Amino acid sequence: NCLEGLIFVITGVLESIERDEAKSLIERYGGKVTGNVSKKTNYLVMGRDSGQSKSDKAAALGTKIIDEDGLLNLI
């Protein structure tokens, strides 16, 4: 459970895995996936064609922004 207690938001199109697979992977390792960035969000996983508003909010809140490889490296 290397992601225990961590909260993730996924945005954009992921290249190597589907969004549902990424969500399942995060949950399997103890993390939680939500739909919107908040002060409780630990990581924003940004894929291709992701919206600017979520990354702006993450930056404003100090949320770590990672890509798909960054997510896989956490596991």
Rank of each mutant, 00 (worst) to 15 (best):
N1G: 09
N1K: 11
N1C: 04
N1H: 02
N1W: 03
C2P: 06
C2D: 09
C2E: 03
C2L: 08
L3Y: 00
L3H: 00
L3V: 03
L3F: 10
E4F: 02
E4W: 01
E4D: 08
E4K: 12
E4R: 09
E4Y: 07
G5H: 02
G5Y: 15
G5R: 01
G5A: 00
L6H: 04
L6N: 08
L6I: 08
I7W: 10
I7M: 10
I7Q: 15
I7D: 09
I7S: 14
F8C: 00
F8G: 03
F8D: 04
F8K: 03
F8L: 01
V9R: 04
V9T: 13
V9H: 07
V9Q: 03
T11M: 09
T11I: 05
G12R: 00
G12V: 03
G12I: 00
G12H: 02
G12N: 06
V13A: 13
V13Q: 15
V13E: 15
V13Y: 09
V13N: 15
L14N: 06
L14F: 12
L14K: 06
E15N: 09
E15G: 09
E15K: 14
E15S: 13
S16K: 15
S16G: 12
S16E: 09
S16Y: 07
I17Q: 08
I17Y: 15
I17N: 07
E18G: 15
E18S: 15
E18P: 15
R19V: 11
R19Y: 14
D20F: 06
D20I: 08
D20R: 10
E21P: 03
E21S: 11
E21H: 10
A22N: 00
A22G: 03
A22K: 02
K23R: 12
K23W: 03
S24M: 13
S24G: 10
S24Y: 10
L25P: 05
L25K: 07
I26L: 04
I26W: 00
I26S: 03
E27C: 05
E27M: 07
R28K: 12
R28T: 09
R28A: 10
R28Y: 06
Y29W: 04
Y29M: 12
Y29C: 13
G30C: 03
G31C: 01
G31M: 00
G31K: 00
G31V: 00
V33I: 05
T34C: 12
T34Q: 15
T34L: 12
G35C: 14
G35Q: 15
G35W: 08
G35V: 13
N36I: 12
N36G: 07
N36M: 11
N36W: 06
N36K: 15
V37Q: 01
S38C: 11
K39N: 09
K39G: 09
K40A: 12
K40I: 05
K40Y: 12
K40D: 15
K40L: 09
K40W: 07
T41Q: 00
T41S: 05
T41W: 00
N42K: 03
N42D: 10
L44G: 01
L44H: 03
L44A: 02
L44E: 01
L44C: 06
V45T: 01
V45C: 02
V45M: 01
V45A: 02
V45F: 05
M46V: 14
M46Y: 02
M46F: 05
M46W: 02
R48Y: 03
R48C: 05
R48F: 02
R48P: 05
D49L: 08
D49K: 13
D49P: 03
D49M: 10
D49C: 07
D49G: 14
S50V: 09
S50A: 15
S50D: 09
S50W: 12
S50Q: 07
G51T: 15
G51D: 15
G51I: 13
G51E: 15
Q52L: 10
Q52F: 10
Q52G: 12
Q52I: 15
S53M: 11
K54P: 08
S55L: 15
S55A: 15
S55V: 15
S55M: 15
D56K: 15
D56E: 12
D56R: 13
D56L: 12
D56S: 12
K57I: 14
K57V: 13
K57A: 14
K57F: 10
K57G: 07
A58L: 06
A58E: 06
A58M: 07
A58W: 07
A58S: 06
A58V: 09
A58Q: 05
A59P: 05
A60M: 12
A60W: 05
A60V: 10
A60L: 11
A60K: 12
L61F: 14
L61N: 07
L61S: 08
G62C: 05
G62P: 04
G62H: 07
T63P: 08
T63F: 05
T63C: 14
T63E: 01
K64D: 06
K64Q: 10
I65C: 08
I65W: 03
I65R: 07
I65G: 01
I65M: 10
I65F: 05
I65V: 11
I65P: 04
I66V: 08
D67K: 05
D67L: 04
D67S: 09
D67N: 13
D67Y: 04
D67V: 01
E68C: 09
E68K: 11
D69F: 10
D69I: 12
D69R: 13
D69Q: 15
D69A: 14
G70K: 07
G70R: 04
G70N: 06
G70Y: 07
G70L: 02
L71I: 03
L71Q: 01
L71T: 02
L71G: 03
L71S: 02
L72W: 11
L72D: 04
L72P: 02
L72C: 06
N73H: 08
N73W: 04
N73T: 10
N73D: 12
L74M: 13
L74T: 02
L74R: 03
L74Y: 00
L74H: 05
I75D: 03
I75Q: 05
